[in-house]
Amino acid sequence: MIKKLASLANLKVKKKEEEYFKKQFEETLKIVEKFDSLDTSGVDETYIVTGTKNVLREDKIDPLNMLTQDQALSGSKNTHNGYFVVDGVLNNDL
């Protein structure tokens, strides 16, 4: 289970960590599951607490609020001709 989760989350977990994480997940979920004692039938879920509804704006470029190409690339360790370089994805076994 831990191996699968790590792969889904794009993380590497060492073999010896697997058992450790598994035990901790079980402990955590045991604490979480205490909330099962509360009856929630007929109760709606809350995803946003202040009641804000969809906020829309025009899809326009604001040149005063954008990074230059140089600024955008300034933190990257691997660039090529003004672009970010990323690992290939097509050959990865997902």
Binding site: F35, D36, L38, T40, V43, D44, E45, T46, V49
Partner: peptide
């Protein structure tokens, strides 16, 4: 979903 319902409570 259970958590978000209890959030409502």
């Amino acid at each position: 979903k259970k958590a978000q319902k209890i959030r409502t409570l």
